[in-house]
Design a binder for these strands. Structure first.
Lengths: 341, 341
DNA sequence: GTGAAAGCGCTAACAT
DNA sequence: ATGTTAGCGCTTTCAC
């Protein structure tokens, strides 16, 4: 089973050829399933391979073929449970197709993200799947263009990139959630999430605004805090909203980090969701189903995102043109969106 | 910035040498900071590198040097929030030291895990960090021995492996948790978690048993369900325990998956933790702090585990001998461990 | 201080 | 059907 001989040195195709008493190329042909190989040759080579525990060197094969069967996967933070689900499904699907995943966190920094992309380029990955920190950095755009490898974006919308994308239909879910609140009579509906330099926020915002318009109500910038996906940002701004008079009667938190921050602020101030204030979370998290009170949410299938991303990339690796795949969202009203009025 | 010329072909050290009018080896020397390089040479080479956007090929360097600066990271499931924290911290730390992480999920299968290890070997990773599915598979052990690369185990205890390990002192935390319950008067304390073929469970069980012994009480196998870390297993066995008469007055769930399953069963039966039954969770999860009622827990610092794992591996890569690093645990009593009697 | 050449492990084109 | 050879992009002797 070992691919190293007793000397500690690696067993190469050379050793196999020597032991079998044949040429290097014959070993290579046999192993790669070339048609022109006699049964006698096959037997000799297979014996030697087994006896020596030979194992082809992926590195050497890569240098030769120009293809590594490695895929770069860049996200802001693998500890975000949504990304973790995407990553798991994606890795499984890539693995089934003979690819490995190089994981890199961009830590919310455009600079780190850019460095990661450049490193993946130097590592000659066959493709990249990425959830970019921001869409509006010319620096990132330049780095991406220099990749010259198939790219799949996760929930990002950028022009002139020749990339595929898995995008979420946030609009529908957020529209329904906002409409639900408006129908109940809420008017001061705070919206706390990351900034508009990612499609995720823009599409959610579109749904939020559209629901107000459909209800014949004015939407106010005053109740929007669109500055960061991290819990700290949501904590600070939720706190701030709640100190106002009058304060919001409902809160929509976009993403798991924002939800965590918002709920922390509410806890701190001993404001009960589903009673003192209505609350809706966009995206769900582990043990979501046993959280009490039950949280009204806009759900999306993160696993499907991962599988789709892998498929889109595999298609491009097979020469197909870039394309888009849309993941749907579903709003479900539960206890947390009651009360508040 | 691009490392490809207008022909779409890769820019190699050859092109740089040609443009600078020098030998290949001189370019290599200049770029690798060799001392014997004249300022004139340096200038010529640097000009050519910049003009052509040359970027050394990691693959070719790897083949030459025999070192890839890639680390394999194998876990059961990246979507487990604890592993996700470990992975994030580990990736950051490896990246800071010039290494990349190849992520593989073993999906709870010894066979997948073994295949993953063999693939990492073929990919010539410089080292492996792994949280193995089981310690008692001779097949896995054989595969690991054939790796012949530095290995760091996460919360696993295996002999004759020449591996480093980050292990958790579950004993202390679980002892305190069990003692806390015993002190309150609980005697039927159910313990639901994964099987004893991993150190994690064995060390927790040791703490559980020791607390009973210290209290002069007998521990009963009847209240142990040590068969799987997945929520389904915990769901089924918690349900089963609760159908007994008399039923347990307290439950300890080991791991996030088990906790999820147990809590689901309790919800289903409308048994309130902290009131109808006492509950302790081993390990915490995202939004744990805002979960209500507040859950009594045994906490460990997952980020520290990731950082430690990276450090232990880097040390071995620097020729040091394998060693162990211990992560402490801390029991905190909260609302959920009240009631039940 | 610089260049020429060998070779890391592999595959494919070209012989025979 | 099998062997010989060149070369993927790089670094490192070894000459000069």
């Amino acid at each position: 089973m070992s691919s190293e001989n007793e000397n500690g040195g690696q067993v190469t195709i050379r050793h196999v050829a020597a032991r079998a008493g044949v040429a290097l190329s014959s070993v290579s042909r046999t192993l790669s399933g070339h048609p022109d190989v006699s049964p006698a040759m096959r037997a000799k080579v297979e014996e030697a391979v087994k006896a020596l525990g030979y194992e082809p060197d992926f590195l050497a094969q890569s240098l030769r073929s120009g293809t590594t069967r490695n895929i770069g996967f860049i996200i802001r933070d693998i500890a975000n449970p949504l990304f973790a689900l995407v990553a798991r499904a994606c890795e499984q699907e890539l693995r089934r197709n003979g690819y490995s995943m190089i994981l890199m966190n961009s830590d919310g920094s455009v600079e780190t993200e850019s460095k990661n992309l450049m490193l993946l380029r130097r590592r000659r990955v066959d493709g990249v799947i990425a959830s970019l920190v921001a869409e509006d950095s010319p620096y990132i755009k330049k780095t991406i263009l220099s990749l010259r490898r198939p790219l799949v974006l996760l929930d990002r919308d950028m022009k002139d990139l020749n990339a595929s994308a898995v995008i979420t239909d946030h609009y529908t879910g957020v529209f329904e959630a906002t409409k639900h609140l408006l129908d109940k009579g809420h008017r001061r509906i705070a919206f706390v999430t990351g900034s508009e330099n990612v499609y995720t926020t823009r599409d959610r915002l579109r749904g939020y605004r559209a629901a107000f318009t459909a209800a014949g109500e004015e939407v106010s910038e005053k109740w929007m805090a669109l500055g960061g996906f991290d819990p700290e940002y949501a904590l600070v701004h939720t706190r701030n909203f709640l100190s106002k008079n009058p304060r919001p009667t409902a809160i929509i938190a976009g993403g798991i980090g924002s939800t965590a921050g918002s709920l922390r602020a509410l806890n701190e101030l001993e404001i009960e969701i589903g009673k003192d204030i209505a609350f809706v979370a966009l995206d769900e998290w582990p043990l979501f189903d046993i959280f009490r009170p039950k949280i009204s949410s806009v759900y999306r299938d993160a696993q499907a995102m991962g599988v789709e991303a892998a498929h889109l990339l595999l298609e491009m690796l097979n020469g197909k043109n870039p394309s888009e795949s849309v993941i749907e969202t579903k709003f479900t009203a539960r206890t947390s969106s009651e009360g508040g009025l």
